[in-house]
């Protein structure tokens, strides 16, 4: 065998060296633990120009409400040190438009979708669930946005109450009978209680963290930099907060945790997995590093190879305290 043939052989062997990246988040099975966060990825159409978005563990859609939402007035975004403040206000085309227009496109691309839903009251969540019935077998899960800091009605105001969380999760789960993920906020004090409520309602997992409430002021005009005054902070600035929340919730073993908040590199993603996240969400990084999704998947594989670990599940929650 020549050197060339030999090296080719080694190359093939290395690639066949099954490194398992697949994870189970309760009953949700993903080929890898990399999920794109709600509101940061569209439906794969835009990012499909940079890489094959079907390779991602899953893509969470923006949050859909029953009727189209205009969203908040501009300015809606503001950069802060290593962070991004936003007050988009859940602008969306409404669930009907998603089902008719965006869903077929995502399906055509082979994207594993987690559909994010947002309701301003219990009835809206139920009505949304009924609408989703027709596509429920073609999506991975439902994520309930119970924690948007940018809408006055609904969102955090009404759905941060544990009793409400339980009711909402239960009603959606009852109608759709597919896995339901509850997205919770770092802004509420009763995170554990909220997670217990979600579990009692039948949730499969908890997504944390949504953005952290923040603001910025223009000292020349004396005006807030966001028209909505306050917004949600994301990006590297919130990573340590997110990590601590993920750790504190995951160790309670109430439900599997999907960890997110400021993940910008494979190293960041690994920190979350080691701290106890069963999967990771990539959000704001998509705006800066357009190919971050595949970069992290490749990076996880490389890391495991380097550490001679065959299964990603071997590192999840292995934090040594």
């Amino acid at each position: 065998m020549t050197d060339k043939q030999n090296s080719l052989f080694v190359f093939i062997e290395e690639n066949n060296n099954d490194i398992n990246l697949s994870v189970n988040i309760g009953k949700i099975h993903l080929e890898n633990p990399v999920i794109m966060c709600s509101g940061t990825f569209g439906y794969g159409e835009e990012y499909g120009q940079f890489y094959n978005t079907a390779l991602l563990g899953a893509v969470t859609t923006k949050s859909y409400s029953l009727k189209p939402e205009k969203g908040n007035p501009p300015p809606r975004i503001c950069e802060t040190p290593a962070g991004l403040l936003n007050s988009i206000g859940l602008q969306n085309d409404g669930i009907d438009c998603f089902i008719k227009k965006h869903f077929p496109e995502a399906e055509r691309r082979g994207i594993k979708l987690i559909l994010s839903l947002f309701g301003s009251d219990m009835d809206e969540f139920s009505e949304l669930a009924y609408k989703v019935s027709e596509i429920k077998d073609k999506i991975v899960a439902i994520e309930l946005n119970l924690s948007c800091p940018n809408v006055k009605e609904g969102g955090i105001a009404f759905s941060s109450v544990p009793a409400d969380i339980k009711k909402i999760v239960r009603s959606v789960k009852r109608i759709l009978k597919i896995p339901v993920i509850a997205k919770l906020s770092p802004n509420q004090h009763n995170l554990i209680e909220a997670a217990v409520a979600a579990e009692k309602g039948g949730a499969e997992a908890i997504s944390i963290i949504n953005t952290v409430v923040g603001m910025s002021v223009d000292i020349e005009t004396f005006k807030p930099r966001l028209a909505n005054v306050t917004g949600g902070l994301s990006g590297p600035a919130i990573k340590p907060i997110a990590l601590a929340k993920v750790y504190s919730l995951a160790k309670e073993k109430i439900l599997p945790v999907i960890g997110m908040g400021g993940i910008f590199s494979v190293e960041d993603a690994l920190e979350f997995l080691i701290a106890g996240a069963s999967a990771v969400g990539i959000g704001t990084a998509n705006f800066i590093k357009y190919d971050i999704g595949v970069t992290i998947i490749d990076g996880l594989r490389e890391y495991l190879k380097r550490r001679k670990i065959h299964d990603i599940n071997e590192i999840i929650g292995r934090l040594e305290v």
């Binding site: 509101g39 940061t40 990825f41 569209g42 835009e46 990012y47 923006k62 205009k70 969203g71 007035p73 501009p74 300015p75 809606r76 975004i77 503001c78 950069e79 991004l84 936003n86 988009i88 602008q91 704001t284 998509n286 705006f287 357009y290």
Partner: peptide, 27 residues
Amino acid sequence: EEKMACGVGVCNGCVVKVKHVKGEFRY
């Protein structure tokens, strides 16, 4: 022009108010 985040249309950060049907507006 407006402050932009993604630049590719996914984040809805850089919106402008425009006229819509029946005296309404949209972004």
